[in-house]
Write a protein that binds this DNA or RNA. Sequence first.
DNA 1: CTTGTAATGTACGAACTGGTACGTTAGTTT
DNA 2: AAACTAACGTACCAGTTCGTACATTACAAG
Lengths: 220, 220
Amino acid sequence: MMRGMTTTERRRDAERTKAEILQVAQREFARKGYAGARVDEIAELMRTTKRMIYYYFSSKEQLFIAVLEKAYSEVRAVEQKVDVAHLAPVEAIRTLAELTFDHHDAHRDFIKLVAIENIHQAEHISKSPVLANLGTPVLDLIERILAAGKASGDFVTEADAVDVHMIISSFCFFRVSNAHTFGALFGRDMTAPENRARLRKMVGEMVVAYLRGAGAADVT
Amino acid sequence: MMRGMTTTERRRDAERTKAEILQVAQREFARKGYAGARVDEIAELMRTTKRMIYYYFSSKEQLFIAVLEKAYSEVRAVEQKVDVAHLAPVEAIRTLAELTFDHHDAHRDFIKLVAIENIHQAEHISKSPVLANLGTPVLDLIERILAAGKASGDFVTEADAVDVHMIISSFCFFRVSNAHTFGALFGRDMTAPENRARLRKMVGEMVVAYLRGAGAADVT
DNA sequence: CTTGTAATGTACGAACTGGTACGTTAGTTT
DNA sequence: AAACTAACGTACCAGTTCGTACATTACAAG
């Protein structure tokens, strides 16, 4: 009884073990990919043994799904905190873009997991009921900002929430996910500290410029 | 003698065999990832046997590198053909963006290979001397367009060629690479035919709008 | 037509890898 | 304090996977 009781350090702690497995597994999957990650290696990097992985997660695939679920839920938790309701449309969307940038910057393992999941045609996400309908909150937020911007006349471009989310995401995601090949081919590390501030500013300006309609063919 | 001689269909043809191996391998690597792809499976999908893979490419890793080299060189060949020199700066950059869009759209396997290579920290690209300094041609082109745009007063934003290339690439790349998870979470297939034209127009407008400086904080 | 060699096919092995059978211990309940 | 169960450890196996030793054949040269 009393699950949370830890006055004396327990040697056996299910929650702790599960958490450690997830943490180590996340790093391994992010670094080696799904097929490239080794269950034995994950086990060696923990205090517990391989047996525990199967005790709590049944299979490598289930473990990967659990890692994805945990990572996505953490993302969601952060996104909920974004408060841009009190800002004017232009500043609201700019801020959202910059916060998205910060978030991607801070959760690089998560980005890699998503990239891996895309290589596998999102087959694991499909198997998880937890992960469906997880995108709607952001879309609602963007929708409100867009409506306000249209009403105030700041936004001219015809674009829906999904489009805008895609613009922002693509930039922030690519910067992290493709840093290696981009760096190898163009000699610039997009994730280097000295480039951070400039690129962060770029996302914001890009979305705002686009929504203002300055890119249309009939504009001078 | 006479390598190209093929009046009678030869049963033994090194070039043909090598080409088929590369083609099949490209598809397998793109679908399963590097570690996920199986040499035996690649062999089964060809007319020849696994022995030939090792006869011509020595190892799985070398094969993957060869696939990357072939894919990148094909990309480069297409990019060389882009002729935007005669266009005005705004139309030139817009056209470049749209052509990049088309190119990514047409070479999805290549996109996936690059994504895979990024998961593996571009370690294979680094091992290939062929693949270094491959990005410069595009950068030169963009540089010229930017200079012309600055001179004509069309472009106001301070951004160099690498930045602009990144904006364009991120959008085009993300659309293909993340189509699966994006579709699963937001219910829209970015690669579906009905979205193609709209998104293609978006890249162009986005870059142009950004370069015109409409996103800056001090612009009304 | 013989002979040399590039190209190809067959069979197999050593190491790895996901997964499990079985035994043990800590902590809780009564 | 006995008994019960969740949590954990060890040893191991069966299937897979990259790679190779060895045999063979098509083709070109002289």
